[in-house]
Design a protein around this nucleic acid. Structure first.
Lengths: 337, 337
DNA sequence: CGTGTTTACTAAATCGATTTAGTAATAGGA
DNA sequence: TCCTATTACTAAATCGATTTAGTAAACACG
């Protein structure tokens, strides 16, 4: 109803607004004990709560950052988000979360709205299709960090998985266990989704390194709803793969669904390895061999990098930080014969 | 650097700030085409972006709400959050997300900070241990909605699962399949966690209704890290349960870990049912019979209720809204002989 | 005793919008 | 022709803090 303002406190304590403001900001340099007490009492009595919006206007800082993700429902996102929030909590910052569903228009709208709301920085899982917008932010030196994806030719700090290494870990692990016909399952290969490209490239490269042929038919690249058909086709071919590498948790789910429906035995009929250490990897039978991303470290680092920029500890060069994946050996890959 | 303000636009377009403001708010009532064009051009030329903070100060509305949860990593939370964000997106509102880890001090701090930041409303998964604070918000008629938990004697809208029904669905399903010795696994039973209490109460009530005895030893109430020991003890007793009811996804995970380690066959040695339809319920072998919460509907409703209050469509009475769980029959419960 | 310094405050400007009250010019009606 | 209405704007107050420049009183020192 009748919001209490600093002026009310000042009046009751018989001092000026300025003095109350000094008090609230703990600038006690030249303030008598007497006055401090009177102000404290007035605040208490009126139940005064400062209006941070007013302060933000003057100070040009909102102690709020925006995090723009594809979809909080994805495990990677949730974990990165949690790590970011933890770092923010330490600095009394707040986090605004937005879901783009990988839609560039939504991304644009959110970035513009959040900037209008004067957030102090943005951590973005970029769709990769708003180049102008990204560039504008760079020009204006607006604190910005990308996570999961990077955008070629756009000098923005990015926190990424070492995707080549992830694929190599998977391939090497399979090859070392005697597998030679290795398939890869992924959503469609489009040019602006860099990690996808890198994982596929890494996959092919690792095969070649091991002296194995790259069989294009073994690379199933389809939208999730059609993946089942793709797998059916793959396994009805005369020489189907002995092992599958799932590019992420969503494709893993499709594969698990498929093997269940078709009664394929893992690891005996088919070995399986995936990127993303899903929650049930340990619990599933057989337990699932996975390549884990250090999601919390990545989120933490993203936030730390952002705060470096917010604090103007500039170090003007932008950096692409690659985080190492970890192979977690379980039972879905076993030695052949 | 040199932020562009409305004054700059006004100067360039040769009109007053007021006119620019009218233009931006699409109050074209008495504005010549000529002027509109000039303003549009000036905005374009300067790359003007409005400062919403300044507007918020005047308008006393930030188009931002706070969502305070235990932990975004929980599936329920993530899904509810996503639904809330969708509703907000439709109204051009933004969402600040905070994790309390079920710590009342963190909860208090967040609520106070967010209110200081003038959020227009709060959706809270309450710890239940900040009664004064909750009451103050009620008194001040601050828009507030609780989710997942409610707080007795505190008249706040709450979006809850019909926990009694959830337990009843589970028990009835088991009993109908011939099970009589049914255990329940839950975190410790503490008085401020109402849903837990309700689920346990519902469990006991459903047993009695079916003419079965309530065996206290069959109710394992332990912190997650100790649950394993609790289960070991339970299954080393002379007459262990034939079926287990997991109160939520976290306890389900513990049980699944336990059965895997101890080579217990589901559903032959032990039937299993749980609240929360985990992502892998379909994929697991056997697929898991679960009681699903309508998480998205709950999140949506929470946001809608909050907006009702924000829009002052008051309807002063507070409401406790109970959402019906759904039994999803799969393979982890089968008919006994 | 006069001047400079320190202490303990305050008045007023400021942040960047919105909004209210007002003004000047033109149009319309009796 | 005079008076009111309408149109197309603007000046100034306002939101609730922060911050700068300033002032009055007490004190310090040669």
């Amino acid at each position: 109803m009748k919001r209490v303002t600093m002026a009310d406190v000042a009046k009751l304590a018989n001092v000026s607004k300025s003095t109350v403001s000094q008090y609230l900001n703990k600038r006690y340099d030249y303030m008598s004990e007497e006055t401090k007490k009177r102000i404290a009492k007035a605040i208490e009595e009126l139940g005064y709560q400062p209006n941070i919006i007013a302060r933000s206007l003057k100070q040009k800082s909102t102690a709020t950052i925006g995090v723009i993700v594809f979809n909080v429902l994805h495990m990677l996102t949730t974990q990165v988000l949690r790590a970011i929030e933890d770092v923010c909590q330490e600095r009394d910052f707040h986090v605004i979360v937005c879901n783009t569903d990988d839609d560039p228009d939504k991304e644009k709208k959110y970035i513009e709205m959040l900037r209008a709301k004067q957030v102090d920085g943005l951590i973005v899982f970029p769709t990769g299709r708003n180049l102008k917008l990204y560039e504008r932010m760079v020009e204006e030196k607006f604190p910005l960090v990308f996570v999961d994806r990077m955008v070629p030719n756009t000098p923005v700090d990015a926190i990424l998985l070492d995707n080549h290494k992830a694929s190599k870990l998977a391939v090497d692990h399979l090859v070392e266990h005697g597998y030679e016909r290795i398939g890869m399952v992924t959503p469609p290969i489009v040019s602006h989704v860099i990690p996808r490209l890198e994982r596929i490239e890494g996959f092919k490269h690792a095969l070649v390194e091991k002296g194995l042929p790259v069989v294009e038919e073994y690379i199933v690249g389809m939208e999730i709803p059609y993946m089942k058909e793709g797998l059916e086709k793959l396994f009805s071919s005369e020489c189907p793969p002995q092992a599958l590498f799932a590019i992420n948790d969503l494709t893993l789910m499709e594969i698990l669904n498929f093997v269940k429906e078709n009664n394929i035995k893992i690891p005996d009929d088919l070995a399986l390895i995936s990127i993303d250490d899903v929650s049930f990897a340990n619990i599933y039978t057989p337990s699932l061999t996975t390549i884990a991303q250090p999601t919390f470290e990545m989120g933490r680092k993203a936030a730390e990098r952002l705060f470096m920029k917010i604090d103007q500890r500039n170090e003007d060069r932008h950096q692409i930080l690659r985080f190492s994946p970890t192979l977690i050996k379980r039972e879905s890959v076993k030695s052949r014969i």
